[in-house]
Design a protein around this nucleic acid. Structure first.
Lengths: 186, 186
DNA sequence: ACCACCATGTAACAGGTTACATGATTAA
DNA sequence: TTAATCATGTAACCTGTTACATGGTGGT
């Protein structure tokens, strides 16, 4: 008693519990599910997954059972509990807050006066290349017939919108730097 | 010897050293500079600032001196050293990597099937409101004559592009959720 | 013969947050 | 008299990463 929000969970815990609502899974399964499905917006390190799962059990949000297999290592399967669903529900219902980006690139731009223009431009070009690559990856995913669920689609579109914005910004930034700094052609 | 990249610095250290290139500052000064100028893309907690500054001194990247004031607390002023500039330079020149967003909101969308459509929509609307507010803030900053430096401008434009993208996405997401889920009007 | 997959974890470390603690000065 | 500004820090905690460790099975 006097526990103080013992049911509150973190985003990572919510991610795991969310995946567990789709069915009983092992840590290994979860890692792969996280990497493939929503991987581009939430992919904890595997050590984190294996650390969090037992905590969920301790807190009553999941149960686990050992499954001994022949010709495969023994695994732990986790199943979400009623309390786990409730905690997840509460987390999902909390209004999310948009946290501003914490991008090292922006620091490099912000202190751009300390860099040779050519290097700055190469940074910006690299960002654009990566953003464009992400656009391609996500476009492919979007077209895929398998992942045609509304919610998966929305996250993909979010990523696309973001990547497009980055690409556009990078292009205009490059032009601007070139125009204003008269980059010497070597 | 066998020090192994002792000159390598983190993004936060780079941010502090970068600010110190503009002149001698105290922890307090740095906190305010970070909040106001680039605050929307890099603002460490104040306890972090006070923790990092002495480390910079220990590692030879800055020097500090005590300044006793009347009618104000004594303060420490930090000045970047040659080694500090070198370390900063190396960090700035390293090609940055675009790390994908880690947004709790996306998790809430991704597991949207577990939420009532009305709540989902309120989440999306909140994001849009915050994105729009950021657009206004940054637009104002952009117009301001004081911050008319190329690099400051580029970071502001980055933020604007991002915020616009989020706003656009939120709007289309809201429409789509409404269309596909037939939200009951209460 | 080698590599990828299945499967779980530990250890060491890095980076960060919030809340607490203190206390004088100055402007409304 | 109330609040903000100046100014520095500690303590407790949380979240996360990389590298290490182990070892059988199945495909090329």
């Amino acid at each position: 008693m006097a526990d103080g929000k013992n049911w509150a969970i973190t985003a990572t815990e919510a991610a795991l519990l969310g995946l567990l609502t789709r069915g009983e899974m092992s840590g290994y399964d979860i890692q792969h599910a996280a990497e493939t499905s929503g991987g581009f917006f939430w992919a904890p390190a595997k050590s984190r997954i294996y650390a969090v799962l037992p905590q969920l059990v301790t807190r009553g949000f999941a149960t686990s059972r050992s499954v001994t297999q022949e010709s495969r290592p023994t695994k732990q399967l986790y199943r979400i509990t009623r309390a786990g669903r409730d905690a997840l529900q509460r987390w999902l219902e909390e209004p999310p807050s948009m946290e501003p980006e914490r991008a090292p690139l922006l620091l490099k731009i912000y202190f751009g006066e300390l860099l040779e223009p050519a290097i700055l431009i190469s940074h910006v070009r690299k960002l654009k290349a990566e953003a464009d690559a992400l656009v391609e990856r996500l476009s492919a995913l979007e077209q895929a017939p398998s992942g045609a669920s509304l919610f998966g689609d929305l996250t993909i579109r979010h990523g696309l919108e973001w990547a497009h914005a980055m690409s556009r910004w990078a292009e205009s930034a490059e032009r601007e730097i070139e125009a204003r700094l008269a980059v010497p052609a070597r």
